[in-house]
Structure formats: C-alpha cells, structure tokens
Amino acid sequence: MPVVMDADRIARTLTRIAHEIVERNKGVDDLALVGVRTRGVHLARRLARTLKEITGDEVPTGALDITLYRDDLMRNAVGPQPLVRRTEIPFSIDDRKILLVDDVLYTGRTTRAALDALIDFGRPRGIQLIVLVDRGHRELPIKADYVGKNLPTAPDQSVQVRLQESDNRDEVVLEQGGAA
C-alpha cells in the first residue's frame, strides 16, 4: 500500500497550485473557490488560506454536493440512495471565475455533475478545475487546469486521499485490488 504523497508533499503541492492560480489569473480578483464534498471542500479551504497569505485578499469559498446530479443515481432501480449533504455557496457565482476543487480526477463523471450543478447557480465567467491527484482513465472529455500530481494507475487500483479535517492525517495512498 504505497504512500504516493505524504503530508509535506501535499502542503508543498497546494502552495504551488496557489501560486499558479495567482499567476494565471493575475491576482485573485473575481475568483471564488468551490470544493466538491467532502475532501474537495477541505482542499478549497486550505487553498483559500494560502491565497490569503500570498495576496492578502480573501477568496470566497463554497461547498458543493453533487449527489443529486450524479449520472448513476437512478440507474440501479433498487438499493440505498447515496447520502445527500448540504451545498453551501454563500455568494453569487455570476461573472466570477470559479475554481472548482476536487481531490481525485478519475472518470470525469463527478466533474461533469459538478459543472451541471454550478451552472444552476448562475453564469460564471469561467470555471477552472483543480485536483490534487489525476489518476487517468477519463470517460468524459474533461481536463484539469491545475494538477497536484499525475498518478498513473491501473483500473483495479484505488486512490485514497486522506486529509486531517476528515481522516486525522494527510496522505495519498495507492491501493491494490479494486473498490475500497
């Protein structure tokens, strides 16, 4: 069960991404961070803190639950429904540049759902995608703008992102043998 990113590596990676955000957008004016629940929200909050340290400006931060937009929601007629959690976007996304944050980019289906959900909140000037890990195997034409680490994986492996806020430690682990 190899650890592919440890706490230091994750911290340095987020700092690098924060600098890339400032460089690409020439500052943080009109930016807002939206994290995909659950771990994307933790990463978005960390990025907001780092951006504040770099620029002195607060970047509004929200949380998006994509459950009700999943494309597999009603596919399997019977079975427990995925848990729905609260979406909290306490600012208007109209005409802002939205930085969408998720922990792992895989098939792209979560990102597709997040894009649809975001558009229901308004008409942003643009959406940029930030992921901590890109593990490949895309099933939709989706690409990240900021990638913490490109991690080649086999389809039967799984990538576990653990963060202090929910798992009491920071690490990214590559696990063998299918669904975790």
């Binding site: 848990l83 922990d103 895989y106 799984s158 299918g178 975790a180």
Partner: peptide, 13 residues
Amino acid sequence: MSAPVITKVDETP
C-alpha cells in the same frame, strides 16, 4: 455505470 472507486466518507451517519 462505473462508480468512482474513490470513497467519499465523511461523518458517516
């Protein structure tokens, strides 16, 4: 059909 392998557990109810 392929559900993401990444589990998104939080405070599990």
